[in-house]
Every structure is written in C-alpha cells, then in structure tokens.
Amino acid sequence: MPLPRITLDPSSTLYPTRDHPHSHPHAHDLPKPLHVETHPKGKNTGTEDASIFFIGNATTVIEWEGVRIMTDPNFLHAGDHVHLGPGVTATRLQNPAVDLHDLPPIDMILLSHFHADHFDQDVEKSLRRTLPIISTPHAKECLEGSKEGKFEKVTALDHWESAIVDIQNSNAAFKITGMPGKHVPPGPAGLLKKINDFIGAVPPTNGWMVEFGAKPKTIEAETDGVDVGYRMYISGDTLLVNELYEIPKRFPNVDLMLVHLGGTTIPSPKLPLAMVTMDAEQGIKLIHLIDPEVAIPIHHGADGDEPPEYDAFLSSLDDFKAAVAKDEKLKDRVVYLKRGGKYSFKASK
C-alpha cells in the first residue's frame, strides 16, 4: 500500500501565523545565525546544501531544497509558564532566538507530542490552520479538536509508521517515520504508567527518522519511499527504554542525531518524583546505541552561566559536555549550538 503523501510548495510565501501584529514587514529568511557549525571532521566542507537552525528548547527549523520544516514549536519567553498536566507546571527561563510572529514562511511542522513546552498556548492560538503537521495519533485528536480552531492538515504517524513529503517541482522528497519513545518511566509493575494513564499528565510521544532523498522512480517503489541520501534521527522526549534498541536494527548508518536531554522532572523541581526525559548519562548511552556521525544536543539544562530552557530541567548541558569530553568515541562527533546557531550539512547524494 502506498504511504501517505504530503506535498510542500517551496515557492509558498505564507507565514506560519494567522495574524501579524508587527508593523514592520516580515523577513523571508531566518535571522543571520549567531554562529555556523559544520561537520566536526570537515566532511563535505563547502558543499553543504541543508541546515538546522536552533531556536530553543526542542524548536528547530530544517531547511533543504527550498522548504522549511519546523520541529516542536515553542515560542514562550522567559518568565512564561506552561501547564504540563494536573498540578504540573514549568517556567521558561530562556527566550527563543526568533519570536513567533517574526518567523519566515514555514512549510510544515514535525511535532513529537502535544505538550505545552513543545506546542505552547500562543502557538496553538496563532498558527494558521492549514499548516501541514505530522505528529502522533493523540496529538492529531488534540489539534483537530483545538478550542482555538481545528487544524486542517494533520497527519498521524504511530511508531514505525511512515509518510512521504514531496517537494513540488523538485525530484527531492523526505520520508518521515515515527520512532518509539516513552515519556514516562516504567516504574515498579508499571505503576507510574498506570497513574499517568489515569490523570493524563504526560502524552504519548514520538521520535522521528527523517530521510532526505529522491522521489521513487516507479509506482511500485512508492511503498519504499525515497532513495535515501541522508538520515537524521530526532529522539523526541523519551527515556532510554528497551524499544529504542530496535532503531539501529531498522535504521543503520544515521548521519545526524538531535538528542533531547534536560532530565525533566515532574511534578516539579522541588518535588522531583520522576524523570521523564533523558539526563546526560542516558543521552550518552543513546548516542552510542544509534551511533550517528554527528550528534547535536537540544532541549537541555543549564549551560555554563546560562540557565536551563525550563526550570523543570535538572540535568545540565555542562554534565553532558563533561561526559563527551571523556569519551574517545564521541568527543569529535558532537556539535553544540547556541540559540540562534546553525548547523550546515550536505543532505543530497
């Protein structure tokens, strides 16, 4: 059976928000990056044709072949609060590198799960309803039933399900596959999961495998997707659970990995009963498991004198950096981006 297909038009000039309150004209491009990083071993230097712009938390913009895909849009400012479930809140401590209403045209959103630190209340209110979104089945229900108005083009992918994203007037395409992830630790006899199922504090989550490639040449090949030229894994908000060990069996040779860290704790930093995202130690282990050429940490805790993205993040980026520096297999494979920084890479064969 052919995979679900989404077509993106790189000539589109539609901005992602429904209203544009600023009087100044919107830029057609992202801001000039504060710094640009490339392959740490110098691979493909000077031939890069794709990039990732880091806005903050888990929000990035992937650019290739004239289209922009935004991940986990979160544009609250320092001091703003998010509601993460019954009795669970978090405060943002860092501003995004770009304001929501200053974004250039965005062609699609890749949403790992429907949680306010990944899809905040301003985003839910402001985004145009015809913006294509790929997310989880749970998020699709929430987006289509939003009290701010139905999102009209939501594609749901469960774990291991795939969709093809065609780029109009181009031979290029993405294949996007939902990767397993668990936002709630198993606990004794699955107790925490049972409690969460009852109170609904932490929603189901996906990681993503984003494969950059060429469109299939025949109808028969459509079930296989694209002729892969580059493979990027985005962990999403997950813990290092057994289901993740299947990923390298199905998807060897990962080129780039975005790993969500932070050691997020609930119900609050003052009462850290459970950790629901990877800390530095788990993040290192997952990088070893996936074995990408390059890894970039996002969604992380304190970095030097800078506070964490959210006050619920208790595992610092400093801890992760220290562990990488001691690891001979990783110390020349990890790239660090500040908010407003960009990583450029070659995605085409």
Rank of each mutant, 00 (worst) to 15 (best):
V165Y: 00
M179N: 07
V254Q: 01
P40D: 12
G236Y: 04
I219E: 06
A163K: 03
P16L: 08
V165D: 01
S51N: 07
E243H: 10
A347K: 00
E65A: 15
Q121M: 07
P21C: 08
D311K: 11
P203S: 04
K346I: 11
R68Y: 06
S51C: 04
H299V: 08
R333P: 08
H28D: 11
K150E: 14
H77M: 10
L110N: 07
E306D: 14
W64P: 14
H300T: 15
T71Y: 03
F320H: 08
Y230R: 02
L3K: 00
A280S: 13
T45G: 14
P292M: 01
F151Q: 02
L30G: 09
V294W: 00
K150Y: 15
D120I: 07
K346L: 13
K249A: 09
V294I: 06
G301A: 05
V324A: 05
A163P: 06
P188C: 09
V36E: 04
D305K: 12
P308Y: 02
T17Y: 03
M209T: 07
H138F: 15
K175T: 03
C142H: 13
G301Q: 04
S315F: 03
Y343F: 13
P25W: 02
V241L: 04
P252S: 08
F114Y: 14
E48P: 13
A189L: 15
T59C: 08
A322E: 15
G304T: 11
M275A: 09
F251E: 09
A347D: 05
D255R: 03
S235D: 11
E246K: 11
A325F: 02
E222D: 11
V226D: 00
Q168D: 15
N253Y: 04
Y336R: 13
H288M: 05
E211C: 09
P40M: 09
H118V: 07
P267I: 09
A172L: 05
A302Q: 10
Q282F: 01
K342S: 13
K346W: 07
T238E: 10
P180G: 06
G46M: 12
E148S: 13
